[in-house]
Design a protein around this nucleic acid. Structure first.
Lengths: 341, 341
DNA sequence: TTGTACGCGTTATCAA
DNA sequence: TTGATAACGCGTACAA
């Protein structure tokens, strides 16, 4: 690399101390006299020392690396989540090696191998292709976020509570029939709670409840077409009745709002709509959409907290055999906008 | 770390080869007999060997790390950009250490120090707080994307061409007056080209051209209020004339569209609108917005390509003194939607 | 308070 | 084709 970089040995030679003393200057400065600290500080300045953490890692075994695997950064939820995860650097000092796995299981497996080769101390997984059982089998602490989490510790939004919040708001708006639009989410995925939470809340409130589970495909266009059909079905099946519609995410909710506005020239009183995520589109919509916000920042912090606990445990002499996975739930928050007050 | 991991020494002992031979198995397998390759392969399997790239780094000096600094991942452009940067792992094998600097200069400086301590081989910078002159002073190849780039190599969208595309489309739509809404972008930032490109294209076409540069502040609400004023001004100053409005980004363009739709119940024939970025909101809008797309994927690839070239050069015996920074421009693409055909 | 000596897990240089 | 030995730059017992 051109000129060799300045090392502890150089500083030691220059200051007539030993390498150990230089090392101590960084890791336990108080064990040196103030005078000598200053000498060393001056020498560092003089020689233009730059620290080399790779060498430190090899010697200490601590990389302070955490691996992150997201499905993509196209969906706002994931990028926002990553943003908040990165922000925990200020608290814990851990650095993040990030991979976007694109929902491809084998690709993600390769990424995990690579991460392990870099001696990551822990892993945060948001993608849902590799089963949690397999994740748990790597000898590294893992915390998952909003995905199947049977064998791993995890942090999720309390999706059931989210479904209930939506049902509650729509009910309060005086809706005669409560409808939930979603895809057929497997029970193992936390987001399934949006369905069950909504249905149960409807039952408790004694309100008519309708489930419309559709395959929204993968692209935007496809989803939009499906939503158009759903809209027509709504118009046909529930004419004149006040419909409270809870849509599984804001992007889909916005499609529905657009459809309604294009047809009726606005949001008729017979519609009330609630989305999920509080993603940008919910407030950018012509009619700002009421929604259920996931506390992304809190989720990220809890996840790093959980991970830190496991990583610390692992550094001890006799680490406990990890015990049962811990699952944390973060309460969602209702955001009232114009589609349902 | 619980059980010590299996090392070359263990494999060597087990197979009665030397550590060197084991190393060769990985880095130059053909220099071993096929027979011995198989023996070693078997031993690796047997003992459950996991590679340790940190040790390799220390010995070889090559980290295959690239540092990335983005302002945030809240804006879609940055997260999409990061997504595409991460995707280049498949081509080049470089891993990415990512920091979100939140537009705080000193924070970003700390992040850069940290990145350098991890012996990154190169850096991709999207945030705009640290001057390119300072970036160039670190002894690491740097490529910037869509930011001030005087002293660094860079890849940017050809913003002037983007402004011209917008002007062209609006002119073709038969607009009588062409208006550009933007903030007062400094000339050093590539995005300034959207202004100059637009203005020059108007002049060439001999069309009336109006610049409305406003301070849109930092939050969404603030920007929305500003856009409301801009809208009122448009209505007042150009009544009855067909207005071709080019807005600096899709989020703002959507605010304008919403304002118009709320006032007029739709998009009157006297308005044509073009945004910039092709971000999700442009097609999620009630009236899907015509826009100028940045070729994010191409930009990311060009950036990594440029960076790779510099990093390779640096590994040679007598690296050229880097010479002048290289600036690449990527052509934008016009996306015709409903607000301007 | 400071120093000695060794280890971390690879790669690189020679020599065989 | 293989091996012995010395780096790589730092941390850490243990000794002084």
């Amino acid at each position: 690399m051109g000129k060799k970089s300045v090392t502890f040995a150089d500083i030691a030679r220059y200051t007539h101390f030993s390498k150990t003393t230089i090392s101590r200057y960084f890791n336990d400065p108080d064990s040196l006299t103030v005078e000598n600290q200053e000498k060393i500080a001056a020498a560092l300045e003089e020689l233009g020392y730059k620290e080399n953490k790779v060498a430190r890692i090899l010697a200490s075994g601590k990389t302070e690396f955490v691996g992150v695997i997201v499905p993509n950064l196209y969906l706002h939820f994931y990028s926002q989540m990553l943003d908040e995860i990165l922000a925990t650097y200020e608290t814990y000092g851990y650095k993040f090696l990030v991979f976007a796995g694109d929902d491809n299981r084998d690709v993600e497996r390769r990424y995990i191998e690579e991460l392990l080769a870099y001696q990551i101390e822990g892993m945060i997984v948001l993608s849902n292709t590799v089963p949690s059982e397999e994740l748990a089998s790597f000898q590294v602490p893992v915390v998952t976020i909003e995905r199947e989490d049977r064998f791993c510790s995890s942090v999720n939004t309390d999706n059931r509570a989210g479904g209930a919040l939506a049902a509650g708001l729509l009910d309060e708006c005086g809706c005669e029939v409560l409808i939930h639009i979603n895809s057929d989410v497997p029970e193992s995925v936390p987001a399934h709670g949006r369905i069950s939470g909504f249905v149960d809340a409807c039952r408790e409130r004694g309100v008519a409840c309708e489930l419309m589970l559709r395959d929204f495909g993968h692209g935007y266009e496809e989803a939009d077409r499906t939503m158009r059909q759903v809209f027509e079905e709504l118009e046909e099946r529930f004419p004149g009745r006040r419909k409270g519609v809870f849509v599984s995410n804001d992007t889909y909710a916005n499609m529905l709002v657009n459809q309604i506005v294009r047809t009726h020239g606005g949001l008729p009183d017979e519609y009330r709509i609630v989305g999920f995520d509080d993603s940008p589109v919910s407030r950018e919509s012509v009619i700002p959409i009421s929604t259920v916000r996931q506390q992304v920042s809190r989720i990220a912090q809890e996840a790093m907290g959980l991970l830190m606990a496991q990583m610390e445990e692992r550094k001890k002499r006799r680490p406990r055999p990890l015990g049962e996975p811990v699952h944390k739930a973060v309460e969602p928050v209702l955001v009232r906008r114009e589609t349902a007050r």
